[in-house]
Amino acid sequence: MGALMESRAGFGLRLTASLIDLVLIILGGIVIGSVFGAVLGGIFGGMLASFESLRGFWGGVLGSLIGISVFGTLYNLLEGLFGATIGKMLIGLKIGDADGTKAGIGKLFFRYLLKNITFVCSLLAGILGIAILTKIGAVLGLIWFLGCFLVLSRTRQGLHDMIAGTAVYPRKVLR
């Protein structure tokens, strides 16, 4: 098991992949957000008629936030479906089972849900109308964020990996 753990991707590679993903999410979100911004700018036109310059600004800001949220959610779903985001693919990483074999879609999707627990709880709060789920999601999100630093440990697994039974490997290592 020691050699297998040594072959897992460490914090630096995973952080690099995450930074690539962040840039792509922001760029994609702004593109999608421009559509939302135009719509919202039109809506604000009726509400802020005396502040002509503000409606475009607030439409753009809100549109970008919506665009980044929507695009980011869909983008991160790549991990749940294929075991890697574009950032991980470019770096040559892929999520596998903790034993070094290829992970099934059920395990990958479970890991995705854990890693994105804040979004999942917010979505459920909106659907079910249970506001406390948003607060629970925020607390769990903080725990998962701090749990990401467990990648610095000997096992090189984040908390979400430990619970899901997964790890991140160089793509060529997975059996």
Score class of each variant (00 low, 15 high):
Ile20Val: 14
Ile20Leu: 05
Asp21Thr: 12
Leu22Asp: 02
Leu22Met: 13
Leu24Pro: 06
Ile25Ser: 03
Leu27Cys: 14
Leu27Gln: 11
Gly29Gln: 08
Val31Cys: 08
Val31Tyr: 09
Val31Arg: 03
Ser34Met: 15
Val35Tyr: 15
Phe36Pro: 05
Ala38Gly: 15
Gly41Gln: 11
Gly41Ser: 15
Gly42Gln: 12
Ile43Phe: 14
Gly46Met: 14
Gly46Pro: 01
Ser50Leu: 14
Phe51Tyr: 14
Glu52Thr: 12
Trp58Arg: 03
Gly60Phe: 06
Val61Ala: 13
Leu62Asp: 02
Ser64Cys: 07
Ser64Glu: 07
Ile66Met: 09
Gly67Ser: 06
Val70Gln: 02
Gly72Thr: 04
Thr73Gln: 00
Thr73Trp: 12
Leu74Lys: 00
Leu74Gln: 00
Asn76Pro: 02
Leu78Met: 13
Glu79Arg: 00
Leu81Tyr: 05
Leu81Asn: 02
Gly83His: 05
Ala84Gly: 04
Thr85Asp: 03
Gly87Arg: 03
Lys88Thr: 05
Met89Asp: 06
Leu90Phe: 05
Gly92Pro: 02
Gly92Leu: 03
Leu93Tyr: 04
Lys94Thr: 04
Lys94His: 01
Ile95Ala: 10
Gly96Pro: 00
Asp97Leu: 10
Gly100Lys: 02
Thr101Tyr: 07
Ala103His: 04
Ala103Phe: 02
Gly106Phe: 07
Lys107Met: 12
Leu108Phe: 08
Phe109Ser: 11
Phe109Ile: 03
Phe109Asn: 08
Phe110Gly: 13
Phe110Lys: 10
Arg111Thr: 04
Leu113Arg: 09
Leu114Gly: 08
Lys115Gly: 11
Lys115Met: 09
Asn116Pro: 15
Ile117Lys: 13
Phe119Asp: 06
Ser122Pro: 11
Ser122Ala: 15
